[in-house]
Simulated scan of single mutants.
Amino acid sequence: MSTPPFQDGAGLPIAAVERETGLPKDTLRVWEKRYGFPQPLRDGSGDRLYPAEQVQQLKLIRRLLDAGMRPGKVVGLDGDALQSLLGQRSVAGGDLSRTNDASYAPPAVLAPLLEAIGAHDPHALRHALGRAQLRMGLAPFVTDLVAPLAAAVGEAWVQGRFEVFEEHLFTEVITGVLRNAIASLTPPSGAHAPKVLLTTLPQELHGLGLLMVEALLALESCNCVSLGTQTPVGDVALAAAAHKADVVALSFSNVHNGATVLASLRELRAQLPPATALWVGGSCTALYQSTLDGITPIRHLSGLQPLVVQWRQLRNH
Rank of each mutant, 00 (worst) to 15 (best):
M1Y: 11
A10V: 15
R19H: 09
G22N: 08
L23M: 15
P24V: 09
P24N: 12
T27E: 12
E32H: 13
K33P: 06
G46D: 12
E53P: 07
Q56W: 01
Q57M: 08
K59P: 02
L60S: 08
I61S: 05
L64F: 03
L65I: 05
G68T: 00
P71I: 02
K73V: 03
K73Y: 04
V75I: 08
V75N: 00
G79K: 08
A81P: 00
L86E: 11
V91P: 00
G93A: 06
G93N: 02
L96P: 03
R98K: 08
D101V: 10
P107T: 09
P107S: 09
V109N: 00
L110W: 08
L113G: 10
I117K: 09
H123G: 07
R126V: 00
H127S: 15
A128D: 13
L129K: 13
L129M: 06
A132Q: 02
L138K: 01
A139H: 04
F141N: 01
D144P: 04
A147L: 13
L149Y: 02
L149N: 01
F162W: 07
F162M: 14
L169K: 09
E172I: 08
N180I: 00
A181N: 08
P187E: 05
P187W: 03
A191K: 07
A191P: 05
H192V: 10
L198K: 00
T200Y: 04
L201F: 05
P202M: 06
P202Y: 08
Q203Y: 00
G207F: 04
G207K: 03
L208Y: 03
G209A: 07
G209Y: 12
L211D: 05
M212I: 08
M212Y: 02
E214M: 05
L217D: 02
N223G: 09
C224Q: 10
V225R: 13
L238A: 15
H243I: 00
K244A: 14
K244E: 11
A245C: 06
V247R: 01
V248W: 10
S251R: 07
F252W: 04
S253G: 11
N254E: 07
V261Q: 01
V261Y: 04
L268S: 11
L272E: 08
A275V: 11
A275E: 15
W279D: 02
C284K: 01
T285C: 09
L287A: 10
Y288T: 09
Q289P: 04
Q289I: 06
P297Y: 14
L301K: 07
S302M: 14
G303C: 10
Q310T: 15
